[in-house]
Computed example of a mutant assay.
Amino acid sequence: MAEHEATQILRHLDSLKPSTIQQAPQLLSRGKLALLHLKALVPSSQTSPQHLLLGASILECGALISIRLKDTESFTRYYQQLQSFYSLPDDRFARHGRPKHQSQVTGLYLLLLLSLGDYGGFHTVLEGLEVSRGKAQVEKDVFIQYPIRLEQALMEGSYDKVWGETKGERVPSEEFGVFSEVLINTIRSEIASCSERAYPSLPIANAKNLLFLDSEGAVVQFAQSRGWVARDGRIYFPQQEEELLAAEKDVMSSSGAVIENTLGYAQKLETIV
């Protein structure tokens, strides 16, 4: 009975549409309970190959649905649960084959690590993959190569390459688009922080290209979110303006003191003469 219920839940999860995806958490809870009865929620030596694949498939649905719901904490938990399945040798799954979303879920986790700036964790996972699957196999895997290309572009500081990779057909699946968007937002924030320290102002047209935004209206909206001022076709960085005004005030103050000292010195000379 538990096997039948788990199989039905898996079919239901696979058929969920964007309009019905909110049903997923309840279905996943029921699915995990059914797997628990089958002793397939955590694999053991007694778990049959069929139940192993069933368990991995339901957890993979949970991982991918978590991405669509933009719940990264839930995705991370599913990824960690799946490691006990992914680490099993091929013969444990027998004729049923390995979990079909293993590469996709792993690639998504690599992309999550990149979006969080966890480069150490990224390379630890990648090195583990190269050991377990072989470097040649990793190089052929489109889901793994996508985050690898992004990481290389980030290390080079080639943000335009990162931007290009996150567009259109280069993205392996719609789930990757979620973390790609997070990654671009992180890069955009870094560029914005550097810009407001380096320049007193920028033309809006230049800021659009610099920040990888689609329109000048999007630049104005982004500027407002950071407390910048948009006027006369330019973006002004208040911090820089304040520092500039303070510097000018210091210069004027110093100049006034110099003038005052010079006048006093001149008066003394007249008295001596």
Rank of each mutant, 00 (worst) to 15 (best):
Y146L: 01
D141R: 05
R98V: 10
L112W: 04
H101N: 15
L154W: 02
E151N: 14
E127V: 08
L88I: 14
P99E: 07
H96K: 05
T106W: 08
R133T: 01
P99T: 03
R149I: 00
S84F: 14
E139W: 01
A136S: 11
K161C: 03
D160V: 13
Y159Q: 01
R149Q: 14
D141K: 01
E156M: 13
Q152D: 06
V138E: 00
S84W: 10
G128I: 09
Q152C: 06
T106R: 08
Q83N: 10
A94N: 13
R98Y: 12
T124R: 13
F85P: 03
L110A: 11
F75G: 05
G97A: 13
R92M: 05
Y146K: 00
D160H: 12
E139G: 01
P89I: 11
L116S: 14
G128H: 07
Q137D: 14
D118L: 11
L114H: 01
T106E: 14
T76D: 04
L112I: 01
F75H: 06
S84H: 15
G157R: 05
E151M: 09
Q81V: 00
S74I: 02
S158H: 05
F93L: 04
D91T: 12
V138A: 06
H101Y: 15
E165I: 06
G134L: 14
G128K: 09
D118Q: 10
L110K: 03
Q104P: 00
L112C: 13
L154N: 03
S103M: 08
G117W: 11
L112K: 07
Y78I: 05
L116V: 00
M155L: 13
H123S: 06
Y109M: 15
A136D: 10
R95N: 13
Y78G: 04
L129P: 03
L116G: 07
R149Y: 05
A153W: 03
H123A: 06
S132P: 00
Q83G: 09
F85H: 05
A153L: 08
Q83I: 02
H101M: 11
I144A: 01
T124W: 10
K100Q: 15
G121V: 05
A94V: 07
L111E: 10
F122V: 09
G97V: 14
Q137N: 09
H101I: 03
E127R: 15
F93N: 05
E127L: 09
V142Y: 03
F75I: 08
Q80H: 15
V162L: 02
Y78M: 07
V131M: 12
S158R: 13
A136H: 10
Y109I: 07
E130K: 15
V131C: 03
V162Y: 07
L126K: 03
T124H: 12
V162P: 04
P89M: 13
K140L: 10
G128Y: 06
D118C: 06
G117I: 10
I148C: 11
P89D: 08
L113C: 04
Y109A: 04
R98D: 04
G164H: 09
D160M: 08
R92A: 02
L154S: 02
L113Y: 04
R77Y: 07
H101W: 12
T76E: 08
Q152N: 12
Y119G: 06
Q145H: 06
